[in-house]
C-alpha cells in the first residue's frame, strides 16, 4: 500500500545538471538486491562517495565527496529535489525512486522527467512536478543561498509555496493526483475490473485466437 501524499514544508536540494540518468541515481551493482528497500545510502553513489561502492557495505564510514551537493550540510534534511530537464532518463529500474525515497526525498521538481522514471516515481508515492525552465531557473537562484530554500508542497491545491516567495501553481494528471492523495494500490483497483478484463479477453479471443493458444499447443 502506497502512503498517501500530505501537504508538507521541506528543504530543497538543487542538483544543477540536465539528463541525470538512472545509472547515476543508483548504479547497477546495487540492482542485484532482491529487496525493495535499503537503497537510500547508495543514492547517487558514484557522485556522493570518493570510493567505489558495493552492495552490503556500511556506507557510514565511506569517504564523502565534499563537492557533491547531497553532502552539503544545508541540504542534509532535503525532501525536495530541484533539477534540470530529462531527469531519470535511461533504464526502467524502479530502484531509482526506491533510492530517492530511501534518502528521504518526496518531491522532485524539473522542467521534464523521463517517462518510465516518472511513472515509477508516482507508483512509489513520490511527486514529480514539471515547471517551465524560467520558473526552475528562478528556484535555482533561490535555492543556492546561505540558508536552504524551503517550499510548502500542496497537492490538494496544486501549489508550491516557497518561503518568502510567490506561490507557484503546477499541473498533474488527475488520475495520478487522485492515487497520490489517497495512497491507492492500483493493482487492487484494476482487480476490481476483473469482469471487464475477462470480457475483453473473450472478445479478443474471437478476433485473434492465436494470442490465447497455450505454448504447448502452438
Amino acid at each position: 500500500m502506497m502512503k498517501a501524499f500530505e501537504t508538507f514544508r521541506g528543504v530543497v536540494m538543487p542538483l544543477d545538471r540536465a539528463n541525470v540518468d538512472t545509472d547515476a541515481i543508483i548504479p547497477k551493482q546495487f540492482l542485484k538486491s532482491i529487496q525493495r528497500t535499503g537503497f537510500g545510502p547508495n543514492l547517487f553513489d558514484e557522485w556522493r562517495y570518493l570510493d567505489h561502492g558495493e552492495p552490503g557495505q556500511d556506507c557510514s564510514n565511506r569517504p564523502l565527496n565534499p563537492d557533491f551537493v547531497l553532502n552539503d550540510p544545508r541540504y542534509a534534511k532535503a525532501e525536495i529535489l530541484l533539477t534540470r530537464h530529462n531527469f531519470g532518463c535511461g533504464s526502467s529500474r524502479e530502484h531509482a525512486p526506491w533510492a530517492l525515497d530511501g534518502q528521504g526525498f518526496r518531491v522532485l521538481i524539473a522542467p521534464s522527467f523521463a517517462d518510465i522514471f516518472r511513472q515509477n516515481a508516482i507508483k512509489n508515492g513520490l511527486l514529480p512536478i514539471v515547471l517551465d525552465e524560467q520558473t526552475v531557473d528562478a528556484l535555482f537562484a533561490l535555492a543556492g543561498g546561505v540558508t536552504a530554500l524551503e517550499i510548502e508542497v500542496d497537492l490538494v491545491t496544486q501549489q508550491l509555496r516557497p518561503s518568502g516567495g510567490e506561490p507557484i501553481a503546477f499541473e498533474i494528471d488527475a488520475f495520478h493526483r487522485h492515487c497520490l492523495l489517497n495512497g491507492l494500490d492500483d493493482i487492487g483497483l484494476t482487480l476490481e475490473r476483473a469482469d471487464e478484463i475477462a470480457a475483453y479477453e473473450q472478445r479478443r479471443q474471437q478476433q485473434a485466437p492465436w494470442l490465447f493458444a497455450s505454448p504447448a499447443s502452438v
Binding site: S92, N120, K123, D186, I197
Partner: peptide
C-alpha cells in the same frame, strides 16, 4: 519498458 510495480501489475492483472 516498465518498472517493477508495473511488472507486478501485469503479472496480477
Amino acid at each position: 519498458g516498465v518498472g517493477t510495480s508495473e511488472v507486478e501489475h501485469v503479472l496480477a492483472t
